[in-house]
Design a protein around this nucleic acid. Structure first.
Length: 412
RNA sequence: GCGAUCGUAGCUCAGUUGGUUAGAGCGCCGGUUUGUGGUACCGGAGGUCGGGGGUUCAAGACCCCUCGAUCGCCCCA
């Protein structure tokens, strides 16, 4: 192996073959389903001014300090490779005057970048599909968005073993009261908490709720639930979401421990979770982010969205074989090579995927053709110096006949 | 940032308690057989054993460092 070849950057992937087919299947299915739900397609920049991502998060968080791919351009401006879609879309909503389209349903997909240690289903350049409804305060928006996610997973054939976990974080008033009660409760049990969770108590107390530490889990079980702190409006909103899901036939499971780390999240939070992907069990996640667009200097714009990692979905989808060609043309005599090319051009122009085999040992060309698993094979040989096509009987006789008819009029 | 496991041919892997010129299967290339065919056989190309240093008469194997991969922790917008 050449030892002076540059290596691929850590956490990047070269996706090929069956993996690439599974990836494409996920994207194609998403594109089909989003049209059913009337989501409009958007193409967004891969990088933005750093502020677009850092401002909603708060400047000091780990996420901003350590997890973003930020760099200065030649003008000295700090730019960042997008670590998520939502912030860029929110920026565009403001700067491009998309208020006029509200409520706006948007779908997009593409690469995202986070500076993290790679592990199963986690990469530094990874890919997501993404759906948002901007400027919609009604719980019906949450329901539709979730229904779309549910249908997507079904059409991908991976809904089995995946459950929708649902929670509410309430409105800001509910959320603050709950947060205060949690801090109070965890502070009283501080000595029993794991070291990590003692840290979280200062930094991000809600995160103690999804600690993986056994001791923490026991303490969390008795923590005050959000339900005790919901305002009447917040309770009503959540009820509307759950009854809407029931009406739409979307099964869900309450997970009162499910939280979001950032303050702009309100009301609905959800994750579709599987037990088949090790530590990275979330297959699709999202929530309502009524506060986000304001933090970027826009008008109050209640919105809700989700994103899903294409790699993780592709892993669940499993290997997908690349389809064989319609036709393989085998040139057994090199003198017939040009005629083979002519036939191939005609076949392709009439919409048949076609490969030509005209190199290597002539004896082994037919075997190569068989291995491609085509619908039919045409062998081109020379009789008295004249190229002659002959047709090989495979299972698909009607298709063979179609090709035979197509080639009959062709002369060398 | 931390931890565990692992790096031998294009791919999947063998390689005994350290012991001559490092192996297999698949794939690739060529030949023989078959001759309406996916078979079988023969041959060939391809490896400074991830890299560097050390121990030893002798290292793919043992020790240290380093790079990379995988899985997990932290984090998760």
């Amino acid at each position: 192996m050449a030892n002076n070849t540059p290596q691929a950057v850590r956490g990047t992937q070269d996706i090929f073959g069956a993996d690439a087919e599974a990836f494409a299947f996920v994207v194609e299915t998403f594109e089909r389903v989003r049209k059913l739900y009337r989501f409009r397609r958007a193409e967004m920049p891969v990088f933005e001014k750093t502020e677009v991502f850092s401002r909603p998060l708060g400047e000091t968080t780990d996420v901003v300090a350590k997890e973003m791919y930020s760099f200065e351009d030649r003008g000295g401006e700090s730019l960042t490779l997008r670590p998520e879609f939502t912030a860029g879309i929110a920026r565009a909503f403001i700067t491009d005057g998309w208020q006029q389209h509200a409520p706006l349903r948007l779908a997009t997909h593409g690469p995202l970048f986070r500076y993290e240690r790679p592990q199963k289903g986690r990469y530094r350049q990874f890919h997501q599909i993404n759906a948002e409804i901007l400027g919609a305060a009604e719980p019906q928006a949450d329901v539709e968005l979730l229904a779309m996610a549910d249908q997507l997973l079904k059409e991908l054939g991976i809904a089995d073993g995946v459950t929708l976990q649902l929670n509410t974080l309430g409105d800001p008033e509910s959320r603050e009261a709950w947060r205060a009660a949690l801090v109070h409760y965890f502070a009283a049990h501080k000595d029993a908490l794991s070291e990590d969770s003692q840290d979280r108590l200062d930094r991000n107390p809600l995160r103690i709720l999804d600690s993986k530490d056994r001791g923490d889990i026991a303490i969390v079980a008795n923590a005050p639930p959000i339900d005790d702190f919901l305002t009447a409006e917040a309770r009503e909103f959540f009820c509307a979401v759950t009854s809407g899901l029931d009406a739409a036939g979307v099964p869900w499971q309450r997970n009162a421990q499910l939280v979001r780390g950032f303050d702009y999240y309100r009301h609905t939070a959800f994750e579709f979770v599987t037990d088949r992907l090790g530590a990275q069990g979330t297959v699709l996640g999202g929530g309502r982010y009524d506060g986000l667009i304001e933090t970027l200097g826009g008008p109050h714009t209640p919105s809700v969205g989700w994103a899903a990692g294409i790699e993780r979905l592709a892993m669940l989808v499993g290997d997908r074989a690349e389809a064989g060609p319609d036709l393989v043309i085998v040139v057994e005599d090199d003198a017939a090579a040009t005629f083979g090319l002519k036939l191939m051009a005609i076949a392709r122009h009439t919409g048949h995927s076609t490969e030509l085999i005209a190199s290597g040992s002539p004896r082994k060309r037919f075997d190569k053709a068989k291995k491609l698993d085509p619908r039919t094979i045409v062998v081109v040989d020379c009789h008295d110096g004249v190229p002659v096509p002959s047709f090989r009987k495979l299972a698909d006789e009607s298709f063979e006949l179609e090709i035979r008819t197509l080639f009959e009029a062709v002369t060398p």
